[in-house]
Design a protein around this nucleic acid. Structure first.
Length: 479
RNA sequence: GGCGGGGUAGCCAAGUGGUAAGGCACGGCUCUGCAAAAGCUGCAUUCGUCGGUUCGAUUCCGACCCUCGCCUCCA
């Protein structure tokens, strides 16, 4: 098979292009993912984006890149402040709780979590934020309004020869500016300007920091600029987030970061932007009133597992709106069972056989790689996986596989799974009483007492176990 | 009003200027005492509608219909 290279859609160029990091050796990748605002439990839509980010990271690593993965935790923001006020908790106490839950949910979905130093909190980077705003003020791009807030001037920014509107086509004349702006307005010079530093107001309570412009707190976009540049440098490779963040959040991040003029000559703030599409749930936009608003814990409570949720979220292209349904989760369950069955049989056959060094890359891996190289075409990748499952099952049924071949097949599968992150099926050894029942059924069958055997099978099912009669005797499977 | 996605089988979902991947569901078969969330196998003359270009269009072009998102809260 012809060798391919990784290609990704870049929002900046609106094209699929080869992904090449700044690192001349082409190995190290700086990747920033816009993380959660921790004011509530994350919902399944949030996690689509994080699973997508995880897929990107894992695939880059699969492709031999060393990924420096950073994800921020936004722990100061309007909604958080409101909730802090309502609950009477301290900001720290409030956000720490939801941060822990978020990280647990990520693990539940088997996402690789950045190491602690790469999980920056906005409140822990106030000096870096102030420093960045000072640079913008010094260059005349930011100004302090009469209310004490500091704003970013898009007009001044453009005056410096910079381009505002890199990620989206903007047409200020035709924009319906003003329709949805009200509560957040202070004393901006121009309606398109956005806050870098918000002056303290009574409702902020204890949530404020001193700054050269008076007490206040960071604006929404500035933290990502400050923290990404603090951890990855002023110019890095990959930045991703949900599609809704394209504008204004990411556009403003570019403006702030490039407006500060800290990049080496000719280098952008970020080389490659990736955006994950949203999802619908049961064909509709998620909303609490429609009853189709699910958090990860809601789905776990319904009996689905993290790997089933992950599998479903990974079943469609990240660039398309995806319809997430409970029926889809059932489908993911069936799909995983098929894979587990096949992999389980291979494992049984392989036993402890050690794989001999394989001179060639297995077709499973090359096919998968070709699919994923094409802008992470997971659908095509799944097709490769299931073709392999079918072929493997055929070979198994025909007794064509040796333990050595099974070992090699397993190794190939495990290589893929470093990207898919499905992991092994939870083993769940049957407890003694279940095994005893199964043995009793064997005895009943031997005695041709099929009524008794079927009764036991029904009893096992009621207790959550399915029994499958194989050539090697009964096999117990947890439902 | 501006900008940007979509409409492919019962459902989910890839894809290509040369005759439609894969999954789920469903049917058939195998295994089985009967079964199985076990295995194999079958399942779109057709890709929103109407025109155009072409030897050939689901794919390119145009018009139209429907649908979703963004336009300063948002994954």
């Amino acid at each position: 098979m012809e060798e391919t290279r990784l290609h990704l859609f870049n929002t900046l160029t609106r094209q699929v292009e080869e992904f090449r990091p700044f690192d001349e050796a082409g190995k190290t990748v700086g990747m920033y993912c816009c993380g959660p605002t921790v004011y509530d439990f994350g919902h399944i839509g949030n996690f689509r984006t994080f699973v997508f980010a995880d897929l990107v990271r894992r695939y880059l690593e699969f492709r031999g890149f060393k990924v420096n993965h950073v994800m921020n935790i936004t722990d100061v923001e309007d909604k958080i402040i409101r909730r802090v006020r309502e609950t009477g908790k301290s900001l720290k106490e409030f956000t720490a709780g939801y941060t822990d839950v978020f990280l647990q949910d990520l693990k539940e979905l088997n996402c690789l979590v950045p190491e602690e130093k790469n999980l920056p909190r906005a409140t822990e980077h106030i000096p870096q934020i102030i420093d960045l705003i000072e640079k913008l003020v010094a260059r005349g791009i930011a100004y302090r309004a009469t209310d004490g807030s500091v704003y970013f001037s898009i007009e001044k920014y453009r005056g410096c020869g910079c381009r505002y509107g890199q990620l989206v086509n903007l047409n200020f004349e035709a924009m319906r500016v003003g329709e949805r702006v009200a509560s957040d307005e202070y004393d901006k010079e121009s309606v398109a300007d956005f806050a870098l530093w918000k002056a303290r107001v009574p409702d902020d309570g204890d949530v404020f920091w001193p700054s050269p412009w008076g007490e206040g707190r960071p604006g929404w976009h500035i933290e990502c600029s400050a923290m990404s540049m603090a951890l990855l440098g002023p110019s890095f490779d990959l930045h991703l987030g949900g599609e809704d963040l394209t504008f204004p959040h990411h556009e403003d991040e570019i403006a702030q970061s490039e407006g500060a003029g800290v990049q080496p000559a000719g280098r952008p703030f970020v080389k490659h932007w990736l955006h994950g599409a949203h999802l619908l749930v049961e064909g509709k936009k998620m909303s609490k009133s429609l009853g189709n608003y699910f958090t990860v814990r809601d789905l776990l409570a319904k009996g689905f597992t993290g790997r089933e949720i992950r599998c479903l979220l990974l079943s469609a292209s990240y660039r398309e709106t995806f319809n997430f349904t409970l029926a889809g989760l059932e489908g993911a369950r069936a799909q995983l069972a098929r894979i587990d069955e096949c992999v389980g049989k291979l494992r049984e056959l392989a036993g402890s056989t050690v794989a001999s060094a394989s001179p060639s890359v297995p077709a499973l891996v090359t096919g998968f790689t070709a699919a994923m190289d094409s802008d992470l075409n997971v659908s095509a990748a799944w097709a490769v996986v299931f073709d392999w499952v079918r072929d493997t099952n055929r070979s198994l049924a025909a007794n064509e596989l040796t333990p050595a071949l099974a070992t090699a097949a397993l190794a190939a599968w495990e290589r893929l799974d470093t990207v898919l992150g499905l992991g092994a099926k939870p083993t769940g050894e049957a407890p003694a009483d279940i095994v005893a029942l199964a043995n009793e059924r064997v005895a009943a069958k031997k005695a041709k007492d099929f009524a008794r055997a079927d009764a036991i099978r029904a009893e096992l099912k009621a207790k959550g176990w399915v029994v499958e009669d194989t050539a090697k005797g009964p096999k117990l499977k947890k439902i």
